[in-house]
Design a protein around this nucleic acid. Structure first.
Lengths: 142, 142
DNA sequence: TAGTAATAGTTGTTGTACTAACTATTGCAA
DNA sequence: TTGCAATAGTTAGTACAACAACTATTACTA
């Protein structure tokens, strides 16, 4: 069937495999966290005090999704919201010490996952791969 | 921020852009269908009489998801289930004439979308791109 | 400065993703 | 042939994705 050779299908499949493997590793590490939660937690950890809009842009997700993921991260005690002093519409989002510990705990796993995916891919192929991804993003941005 | 250069982030972003653009084109074509519904509809159209398990494997989705997508396609009158004569646990799934018409209507759009994504990518870069995707799939399949 | 537009974030709805638990049917083996 | 494992599919629960509608606050403009 021709669809199996189409690049969107291959991308979908690769993403799903990667997500499944990541989730398994998180479970093995004894941490109750989803891949999406990890992405947002890492962004918050890396940029302490970001607003939700800024997180939205960095995570490339929409505002309601980010609201809910942060809700979940707050419930788990890993991040907290603080109303901005300059603009009371805004929150500044920070990691708690538990959140920081979680990032430190998972970071090696995340790096290992990335490496597992492209360990046997040459530098030049990886460059081409990223270049094509960049083209796709451009070509689908009106 | 380093995360923006990581390949999983780029893949996520490219997929999301592509999905958004596809959805817009479907709306412009005046058809109420999601990208996932399109994928499943196309597979059913291409392989008349497939069981849900077979569709599950081809679409690379899980069984409950396929059940619900087919439910939605049935509601829209594009496909129907028929209990298998040999194995009464199974359904054989077929497109209705409306379903076939829908595939014919959308196929050019789908091809155009694919082309829009990689129109300015060289043949050799595309080969490398697909090769790396294949590696990723292998590397994340235990 | 009053009125309105823009911005930040939330809530609700529908559809999909994943897991687990379930029913119905079939296949296999003691 | 009974009993149990495997298979096909569904249902339930939680989380994320996309869209629309909403509140609260800030910024702009006549």
């Amino acid at each position: 069937m021709e669809i199996e050779q189409a690049y969107p299908y291959l991308m979908e499949r690769a993403m799903r495999q990667m997500r499944m493997v990541s989730q398994q590793y998180f479970v093995q590490a004894g941490v109750d966290i989803t891949v999406e939660q990890w992405v947002v937690l890492y962004i918050i950890h890396d940029g302490q005090g970001l607003s939700q809009v800024e997180i939205t842009e960095l995570a490339f997700k929409d505002a309601p999704t980010v609201t809910r993921i942060i809700d979940n991260l707050v419930k788990k005690g890993w991040v907290y919201r603080q109303v901005s002093a300059e603009d009371r519409r805004k929150f500044e989002i920070y990691t708690t010490s538990e959140g920081k510990a979680m990032v430190q705990k998972l970071l090696p796993t995340v790096m290992a996952i990335r490496e597992q995916g492209i360990g046997n891919v040459s530098e030049s192929d990886l460059r081409v791969f990223k270049r094509v991804l960049g083209r796709l993003i451009e070509n689908f941005t009106e």
